[in-house]
Structure formats: C-alpha cells, structure tokens
Amino acid sequence: MELVEKILNGDIASAARLITMIENNREDAARIIKKIFYHTGNAYIIGVTGSPGVGKSSLVSDMINVFRKRGDTVGVIAVDSSSPFSGGALLGDRIRMQDHEVDPEGVFMRSMATRGNLGGLSSATRDVCYVMDAMGRDVIIIETVGVGQVELDIVNMAYTSIVVIAPGMGDSIQAIKAGIMEIGDIFVINKADHEGVDAALSDMEYMLHIGADKKEWHPEIFKTVATENKGIVELVEGIDKHRKYLEDNGLKSKKFYSMEQLIDLIKKRIEKRILDNKLGKDNIKKHINSILKKEIDPYTVADMILDDAGL
C-alpha cells in the first residue's frame, strides 16, 4: 500500500492527507491506521493544557526550539473548539509558530477542531499521534484548552502532562476547579513577568502538597516567561526527568495504551457500524416518528436496533 509506505518514509503531504481522512471519520483511515500501528511507540508524547491565553502556544514554540537544537523532530497537534452554532472553528495556535514554519522537515504541526464530536475527538487525536509517530517524529506535543472532560482525556494520552497557569485572575483556582491539578505531571506558571507570581506559586505548592502523599511522582513547578524564552531549558529538563521516571519504573510502555482508549474506540466502532453502516439517517428518522406518535417507546427501539445487529 503506497500511502502507508510514504507515511513511514515521513512524507508530509501523505501524512497531512491521512490526518484529514481521520478527521472526516472515514473508514479508509482506519484501514491505514491498522497498518501503521505496528510502527508506532517511538515518539514521546507531551500534553500541554491550560486556560485560554495563558501562553501555551508560546511555550510550545519555545520548547520546540530546545528539542530541535538537540536534533529531535517534532509533531504538534493543536486542538481548539468548534463553534457550537456554526460548526466552524478559528484555529489560531499557529500565530506563535512562525519560526517553525520554515522548518517543515523538523516541525510538523496540525490544527484540529473539536467538531462537536466529543466522543470521537480523543480517538481521532490518538490516531493523529500514530501518524506522526509512524512518520518518525521523536516528540509529539498536544496543545488543548484545559476545560472539559475531552481535553483531559487527550492530555491523559500523553506520557508527560504539563498544566500551564498564569498569575492573577484566580487562574490557579480555576485550574483546581476543573480537576486539572490531578492530571499534571509538571506545572508551569507562565507570564512570570507579571505580578502575582509568588502568590500563584504558593497556591500551587499548597494544592500539590494536599494530594502529595497519594502519589509516587511529585510534580515540579516551573516559572517561565515564554515571550522572553525564560525558564524553557529548565522546563524541558523537567520533562526529561519525568520521562526517565516513567522509563525506570516501567510505566511508559503501560501508558502507551489504556483501557479507556480501547473502550473509547469500541464505542466509536459500534457507532460507525450500527448507526452509519447499518441503520442510516433515514431509518433513524422513521423510528423517531414512531416514538413521537407514541407507537413505541425509545428503549424498545434502541434494544430492537441492537438485537438486529446481533448484540
């Protein structure tokens, strides 16, 4: 199969096209993923999450500089929400990636919209990771706006999850509310040139201290100024340290595939097989009509459909 070979050779155009097929939820994408899966597992996946505007993309861009200097190739997946009204999306994370757009062999970035398809998004992101991994990218960075469950799912597929906050505006409290504190392996207080850094730092130290005895890994906190490239080398050293911790304890290979991921995929495949292939929109509409006329109840319809599918 030609496309598979091209991707394994790192061909950007082929990878870009496959990613579109994944995003469009096409069955031929699944056929190719089945083949390239056997060539994955070499990339180190890093998740970067945090509230809008805290400086995630700026940090990612700075981190890429460090990775590129050591000769690592990088893949970036930047996830932003689709508008629930129009279904469109404004994907602006590239604004900060200017320097890397002249280095396509070294940095391959893809912007993804959530497409309101919440169940499918984390498995689509996972598939895009496979593509970049199979292309031979050494490091993959996933940027998401850390608010919803889906974003948390995505960050969970990373080996090292970085939670970014900025001082002031009660941002650290926000982070705690969203349950984001539990998922961070590393915490970054960016915009350390702003006032309130010390307050943010002590808030964060306090929060981390509370959960500390439950955990083997004690997250480190870094202060950065992404716009001035400050604290970035230290941050990447922190990532290396966490990576070594995972590897030394045999945790990295376990993190590569989790039960949640398989369950996620099974749900997606059921949806595809039954709703798309077998049932189709017209049939669903017929059932809805019967339900509206109270000829039948929704549970019976759902069970009937599953029975028909042999489940």
Binding site: F85, G87, G88, A89, L90, L91, R94, I95, S111
Partner: peptide, 9 residues
C-alpha cells in the same frame, strides 16, 4: 468560521 468553515489563522 461563522459560515461553518475551519479556519487556520
């Protein structure tokens, strides 16, 4: 975007 497209800006 408001017309339903995904815009990479």
């Amino acid at each position: 975007r408001d017309a339903g497209m995904e815009v990479i800006y």
